[in-house]
């Protein structure tokens, strides 16, 4: 790396100074490393563990419904109530077209709260939905 401009041995050193490049690249690397876990769509919750789930790339193909362990419901990251959930979903479908619904519920949510959400969605006419899970880290397969 670096282009020698002076040909003579005793000429001035003309290496390209790479220090700023290294600085910038390292900072970018750190930014990406820190931001990557925060970029997943929807709210950040502790997901239940499951081995049989399929892994896909999250490129915004799902409408993410979040459920926190206190029973609060979110469309993507917007908090909603159970009464406004269907409205919100319909609004999103109008804007972004029909998408599959991904339920991202915390592991220790009472099943009651998750059922309340899934029942509402089923009443709205969506019979298939996806549950976000996490692969156990000690997974052998």
């Amino acid at each position: 790396m670096g282009a020698k401009l002076g040909s003579a041995k005793g000429g001035p050193m003309a290496d390209i100074n790479v220090t700023p490049l290294v600085d910038v690249v390292l900072v970018l690397l750190i930014i990406f490393m820190v931001v990557t876990p925060m970029l997943s769509s929807g709210i950040d919750v502790k997901l239940p563990l499951a081995r049989s789930s399929t892994t896909t790339q999250d490129v915004g193909q799902h409408l993410v419904i979040g459920v926190r362990d206190d029973g609060s419901v979110f469309i993507d990251t917007e908090p909603v109530t159970l009464d406004t959930l269907i409205e919100g979903i319909n609004e999103d479908f109008k804007e972004n077209g029909q998408r599959s619904i991904l339920i991202k519920a915390a592991e220790n949510t009472p099943y009651r709260d998750v059922r309340a959400v899934t029942d509402l969605i089923a009443d709205g006419g969506m019979n298939t939905m996806l549950l976000a899970t996490e692969k156990p880290t000690d997974s052998q397969d």
Binding site: S41, T55, T118, M129, E134
Partner: peptide, 19 residues
């Protein structure tokens, strides 16, 4: 890291019978 940024998600499909 830039390539991995579109996060991976694990998902499981379930069906709900109509109410």
């Amino acid at each position: 890291f830039m390539v991995m940024t579109p996060m991976k998600i694990d998902e499981m499909a379930v069906n709900l019978p109509e109410k």
